[in-house]
Design a binder for these strands. Structure first.
Lengths: 205, 205
DNA sequence: GGTTCTATTTATAATAA
DNA sequence: TTTATTATAAATAGAAC
């Protein structure tokens, strides 16, 4: 009748890295790979103590993002010029080609590699500019905000709090994982439930 | 007398997703996983016709990035408010000036998607800001009736707090580990000289 | 938009250059 | 800091909800 015997699935099949024509399949793939990408970004951040930001627009126009510590923070460090009132000093990068001739590269995989290589180069340049400018100063100003409880100085705590810390750690770990895998499609209009008379005015985000 | 017989390698080993202490290993891992992350981003972009941007700062202060069509274009769509007044062609394919050698050849369909997404994004950004203000409320509620900050109801927090939660998680994890192994005097000073650079993790919302 | 279930394809941890 | 090897741990294409 059905497949009481045969393999329940052919398993993962190899695919070519080129636009998926089938709309449905493309959507499913985007969903799966987007999660995978965010997970990888999160792991890179945790494992190597790196700051990472990822922003992805689906062809349908939805936006998803991941940031450690936040997309904004990383992006501003990457390109402080876009931060308010900075002078727009164009990068003095040399254009390797004749500036107009289209490139006809062989295989797409190589093209991707080129794209990645190029971005890395541009990143280095941006970093250089950022360094030449006093980024540290801007960061200092940017973080002039109020300290939040979760930013507490954990290092200052002692052994007595260890049990609680471990519980919190596990709790946070589980929750963070959940949130991470759930991705962050920019929220549809958040339905604001009324909050008691709590003075939130002290939290300026 | 070496290992003419034994397996030449134990093969990939499973690891915990937490900061890698060994400086050398951490660096190697960063290098490998960064490439993996960019490759994944590139594939997602190609396979699903999505616009993706990834920016990563190593703990050593180096910057790396990948963008399709460019980090700039994606970032601006994500947060148009940071882009100063004018709105140059969203996914401009070329920057003959000193912008660098762009090999990007965006297809019209994608450009169209980007334009459509922009409008949608503008509206979402407003919602996003509102949500950020809401973070303060959530935290306050999560702490309701809790004498100690670390007893806060983590489960009640949402995606907006994810970045901070992850930082806290890592911080707690490291500290808890330290306390747990403080049975012995003091381990020899770790040979890892951290970056004297600015600490991005101190960023606040 | 998401999720679950296999069978495979990939990504990589360890190591050594 | 990037790359090559090798043996495994992970990610994920397909199909069906």
């Amino acid at each position: 009748m059905v497949r009481s015997r045969g393999r329940p699935s052919l398993g993962r099949q190899r695919i070519e890295i080129r636009r998926i024509d089938n709309s449905g399949r493309r959507q499913v793939t985007f969903s799966k790979r987007r999660n995978g990408l965010f997970k990888k970004a999160s792991e890179l951040s945790t494992l190597c103590g790196a700051s990472v930001a990822v922003v992805a627009f689906s062809s349908a126009g939805n936006v998803f993002a991941f940031g450690q510590p936040t997309v904004d923070a990383v992006v501003r460090l990457f390109d402080p010029l876009h931060a308010d009132g900075a002078d727009p000093a164009p990068a003095a990068v040399e254009d390797g080609g004749g500036g107009g001739d289209d490139v006809v590269v062989a295989d797409p995989e190589e093209l991707d590699a080129l794209r990645r290589a190029e971005e890395q180069t541009k990143a280095q340049v941006a970093a250089e500019q950022a360094r030449m400018r006093d980024v540290g100063d801007k960061v200092t100003q940017a973080m002039a905000g109020r300290p939040l409880w979760w930013e507490a100085d954990v290092e200052a705590l002692g052994e007595a709090e260890l049990p609680a810390l471990e519980r919190l750690r596990d709790s946070v770990h589980r929750h963070a994982s959940t949130l991470a895998s759930t991705a962050t499609p920019l929220p549809p209009p958040p339905e604001q439930e009324e909050v008691p008379e709590l003075d939130v005015s002290d939290y300026s985000f």
